[in-house]
Nucleic acid binder design. Structure first.
Lengths: 107, 107
DNA sequence: GGCATGTGCTAACTTTTCTTTGCATGTGCC
DNA sequence: GGCACATGCAAAGAAAAGTTAGCACATGCC
């Protein structure tokens, strides 16, 4: 199920200090964007970009909720995952890597 | 022993299709630069750049040798590794992440 | 010598990624 | 209304990474 392209995407997503910190912060408990940005000491727009990438890679999930006092808030939480990186695992993943020229379609 | 910075470096190194292919190719048996470039269908300078990054991350090792017919050749082989990626592992790694401002020195 | 093979380097261009700035929306409360 | 808090988006600039092109060197063989 985990194709080489997906692995590549996850690796590219994890290869960033901000995103690792976001994952670490959310690892304990879920949080909403503004608060998380304050805790990490980064701007909200920047955090949003990274959260979007993390979500696109399937590492976190965002849920829009409305707080008691009516504020629209977006909570993010970590999706459990476990990826084992070994030369053999990579060898297997590479076999399902998409080549620039040939798309997933036929021909 | 594996600091967050090292993990980050390895992740950044692995997050590239060429480098994954190089690892996969070397996973079976070691090879020298020119031949590897032909097999992967990429230019030699490009391969060298990627090999250097892989070596800098500690994933492969290069050895200069002289073939029977006197040609100077550089063989690369994969260094065995096993990295487990989970939210908990990342949380632990982040604790040893270097912050831009504060270097490994004190103050 | 000329050609095929191997190595190395790096300047320069292209592409991608990261980050900031700025503006839009909405709610509750004094 | 005005302020504090929440969300969203996107243009534009800055920084990093990837890639190519071109040069250098050496050896063996016809």
């Amino acid at each position: 199920m985990t194709s080489g392209d997906e692995l590549l995407k996850v690796l590219a997503t994890l290869a960033n200090p901000h995103r690792l910190r976001v994952l670490a912060a959310l690892s304990g408990e879920r949080d909403y964007v503004s608060r998380l940005a304050r805790e990490l000491g980064i701007s909200r727009p920047l955090l949003q970009v990274h959260l979007r990438k993390l979500e696109a890679a399937g590492l976190v999930t965002g849920r829009a909720e409305v707080s008691e006092d009516g504020k629209a808030m977006k909570f993010y939480e970590v999706n459990p995952f476990r990826i084992e990186l070994t030369p053999q695992a990579i060898e297997a993943a590479v076999r399902t890597l998409t080549v620039p020229g040939e798309e997933k379609g036929d021909r």
